[in-house]
Amino acid sequence: MRLSAPAKITLRVFAGIVMAAIYLPLALVVTNSFNATTSGAFPIKDFTTKWWVAAWHNEGVREALWTSIKVASVATAISLVLGSMVAFALARYDFFGKNTVNLLVVLPIALPGIVTGVALNNTFKTVLEPLGIGLGLFSVIVGHATFSIVMVFNNVQARMGRMNRGLEEAAMDMGANMFKTFFQVTFPGFRSAFIAGGLLAFALSFDEIVVTTFTAAPGTETLPIWIFNNMSRPNQAPVVNVIAAVLVLASMIPVYLSQRLTGDDKK
């Protein structure tokens, strides 16, 4: 495209500003976690690591982290099974209502989280609580699994569309039954998409707050809920800041892993 030199420079500066706006706030979180004062005044004058020490010894954080890991693991396991099943059905079969099923999988992520949250909250309170299944860890897992299914589904379905079905037919011709074919031929074919979907589901669940606030009982604190509850408390804000800084740095791990996984597939 023929752009004038000033136009190109303007665009370059603009892109620079956008990138700065994206990353400066994140850098700010990391820097501010070393801020000795709690007033929030800027620029930072005294640096300290005491908040990092305080965060490390914080019981609430540890418990919340453990809760988050439990919720995300179980929700991921459920969405791996259910998401793969739907992906398999949609990629391999033609049946009546296919589009509806597809819509149904995407719906929990297409509707605002608050709708999913309120709907599940309502169901648990009016229908399931009288049956003895009240709000708690279980309801949080149910909520998370509901919107995580689509993550696995998207990844696995995309892969299945590209897989060579001839291999499966060959396996069956050679006498492998359906289950053997699945575990020895089909599954290795979409394994990396399965793992990538699982990672996305785990990350999504680990980060989720809106559905969680509506499906958690007062005692159930995932890490985002803990941050949410403590963000406005002035004496807890520095610890929240440290946790936020850790999360910024830790967020690079799943990116690296998923890049590796999708990179492997291209070979």
């Binding site: 994206i22 706030p25 501010n32 005044a41 985002p224």
Partner: peptide, 28 residues
């Protein structure tokens, strides 16, 4: 660069702008 922040965590990003917009904070 534009997709990476998607991983940084929703609350963390809200928090980062809470710092940015605070009175006497970085934006001021």
């Amino acid at each position: 660069g534009i997709t990476l922040p998607l991983w940084a965590g929703y609350l963390v990003k809200v928090f980062s702008w809470r710092i940015t917009f605070s009175t006497g904070g970085p934006l001021d």
